[in-house]
Amino acid sequence: MSSHTRDEVIVVGGGVIGLTTAVVLAERGRRVRVWTRDPLERTTSAVAGALWWPYRIEPIKAARGWALRSLDVYEELAGRPGETGVRLVEGVMGDTGPDETGSWTAGRLEGLRAATPEEYGGPVGLWARLPLVDMSTHLPWLRDRLGAAGGEVEERTVSALAEADAPVVVNCTGLGARELVPDASVRPVRGQLVVVENPGIHTWIVSKDAAGGIAHVFPHPGRLVLGGTSEEDAWSRSPDPAVAEAIVRRCAALRPEVAGARVLEHRVGLRPVRDAVRLEREPLPGGRVLVHNYGHGGAGVTVAWGCAEEAARLAASS
């Protein structure tokens, strides 16, 4: 096998995990192709509200390490928000106190404090300044950065990972890994969002109501993303009007201005949840290598760069 051939990598999956992994590999000198079933704007990642915070991901200790590494990158990218889609935005993490984060942020997050009653009406909330990522800008930016490093994205439906014939294959298929690996432990947790015109809200908020319903309000350029839901093992990608009404109602209880905002769009995404992220190297016949990087739940954006660098290390010895 020539050295030229050994440099080839196929990344299967074109969401934020796949694209970020491809960027890291390409910028380390690999010849990278991304195979994606869906165009960027139709991936699960495109639906994400995309606040940096570990959510629905295990093992939490490893995830926090990946998240903090990703935070380093997002803070740098936030210097060019119009280009990268990343901004540092203040807001309230409801039902969370400063003492609940200190064990893992280790002073890494500046300005953490208890939210005031005016900022959050619940018993306890955490005021924080966190990366908020506009995926409609960030995903194309990742694709362009990959292209600048010599990589390319190809829309291609894969029915088996064996179709990828490169010396190194990286499996970033998310929920698709359920069939492609196959790995029945990967399952969907459905999230529904309502996108509305922004009536002038500049801070984000995440909370739960007394019945355990999720509410979050994320201000993105030109719009406000309202959520959400967390429905276990639900496969429907069709928005439910009754669920949408409930989302708006919960968010309006937190931010009354939301109540009359004009609805722009309804979105549904299926989070690829697993008991633990699978990030490991699997030797294949003939000296080829398969690196798995999937099962990130609702935290794909949060851990993308940390996981990408680890996946690249696993691929490096090939």
Rank of each mutant, 00 (worst) to 15 (best):
L130D: 00
L130R: 05
L130S: 02
P131E: 05
P131F: 05
P131N: 00
P131H: 05
L132N: 00
D134C: 01
S136L: 01
S136Y: 01
T137W: 00
H138R: 07
L139E: 00
W141D: 01
W141N: 00
W141A: 04
W141R: 02
L142M: 06
L142Y: 00
R143C: 04
R143L: 06
D144T: 06
R145N: 00
G147L: 01
G147V: 02
A148Y: 05
A148E: 14
A148T: 10
A148P: 01
A148L: 09
A149I: 03
A149K: 07
G150W: 09
G151K: 04
E152N: 04
E155V: 09
E155M: 09
E155F: 01
R156G: 04
R156Y: 04
T157M: 07
T157L: 12
S159D: 10
A160D: 15
A160L: 05
A160S: 15
A162L: 07
E163F: 06
E163D: 13
D165L: 10
A166N: 10
A166Y: 02
V168Y: 07
V170W: 05
V170I: 15
V170Y: 08
V170R: 08
C172Q: 07
C172D: 09
C172A: 14
G174K: 05
L175G: 05
L175P: 07
A177I: 05
E179Y: 11
P182S: 10
P182Q: 11
D183Y: 06
A184Y: 08
S185P: 04
V186W: 04
V186A: 04
R187C: 03
P188F: 03
P188H: 00
V189R: 08
V189P: 08
V189M: 10
R190W: 06
G191Q: 07
Q192T: 04
Q192S: 03
Q192C: 02
L193W: 07
L193F: 12
V194F: 04
V195C: 08
V195M: 11
V196L: 01
V196R: 02
E197H: 09
N198P: 09
G200Q: 08
H202F: 07
T203H: 14
T203E: 15
T203P: 00
W204A: 06
I205E: 12
V206P: 05
S207K: 12
S207D: 15
K208D: 10
K208A: 05
D209C: 02
D209Y: 08
D209M: 07
A211C: 02
G212V: 09
G213S: 14
I214E: 14
I214Q: 14
H216L: 13
V217D: 14
H220M: 15
H220N: 13
P221R: 14
P221F: 15
R223D: 12
L224V: 12
L224G: 11
L226A: 10
L226P: 11
G227V: 08
G228V: 09
G228E: 10
G228M: 11
S230H: 14
S230C: 12
E231L: 11
E232P: 08
E232A: 13
D233H: 13
A234Q: 12
A234L: 11
W235T: 11
W235G: 05
W235P: 08
S236M: 09
S238Y: 03
S238N: 02
S238I: 05
P239E: 01
P239L: 00
D240C: 03
P241C: 01
P241H: 01
